[in-house]
Design a protein around this nucleic acid. Structure first.
Lengths: 144, 144
DNA sequence: TAATATTTTGCAAATTTGTCGCAATTTGCT
DNA sequence: AGCAAATTGCGACAAATTTGCAAAATATTA
């Protein structure tokens, strides 16, 4: 994907709501690319010297309001990751032993059941977040 | 349930790992009883005059490490609730409009699918957390 | 049960995290 | 390029969380 294309959807999304794609916003977006879910502290540290702390916070808040990122409670701290618009919808597996988190691909049947669980009770679901925790393959062996 | 029984499982769980059931720990446990998921700040405020702030933090951290409580990312802030050992397993619905959260009862079929999603990939699941978000009945009507 | 060892707590201080106002800069538009 | 609006960085704050340590509570041993 060329650099231009890379920001196309992001820019469109921002523009639609009257916001612009600035350098700091591009940077934060880049930091979220291909790195998995990350804590705010890590993002701030990685942006050090480039973007101010306050701007990172403001950008993440804006991105969340616009549905560009998702905030999830994985393991001990909460983390941000790009939302389903930029990443295929998926769930997470968190290893309680080593603390790593892994992606689990979504499954149409499961999604349907989740939605019907909510709509059956009168709620109107827009999305969801599923975290499974336990032991990853490496840690299963290790704890014989 | 008599007061003695009430703390039996808690005490056993702590003891097994070499910790003791102290007054402050009982208090925090009580605060989590029958009140739904709560933020740290609310717990600290409710414990005011009884337990020190630092102790509340330390207790919640310990409880989470031992699997006594669960930390969930519900709406904007994260909240604590008793884990499945003390509460029937359930999921949450969070209304993005009014910010309230509701319990959704668990469903055996869904639980099975969730577990197999993880085990199919070689992970060994111990539990999970599902948050569905969207609009609650009241807010659906309101936003005509 | 009394004495001793260990764990846990409260307190105060330090650190970290997150927020806010405002002047300077950047961006969008013509 | 030039103007208007949006955005950023820079303190300065306020709130949240962590830490060290002496005192208190709890467990252990005899």
């Amino acid at each position: 994907m060329s650099p231009l294309d890379r920001y196309k959807d992001l820019k469109a999304l921002l523009k639609k709501k009257g916001f612009s794609l600035t350098k700091p916003r591009q940077n934060v977006f880049d930091l979220l690319q291909n790195q998995g879910p990350q804590t705010t502290q890590v993002l701030i540290k990685r942006a050090e010297g480039q973007i101010d702390r306050a701007t990172v916070y403001r950008t993440l808040e804006l991105f969340e309001r616009l549905g560009i990122v998702h905030r999830l409670n994985i393991g001990w701290k909460y983390k941000y990751e790009l939302s389903d618009i930029f990443l295929a919808h998926h769930h997470h597996f968190y290893c309680s032993n080593c603390g790593k988190s892994y992606d689990l691909s979504a499954n149409a049947m499961l999604e349907t059941m989740i939605n019907s669980l909510a709509s059956k009770e009168g709620y109107s679901p827009r999305g969801h977040q599923l975290e499974i925790y336990g032991l990853c393959p490496a840690c299963q062996g290790q704890l014989t």
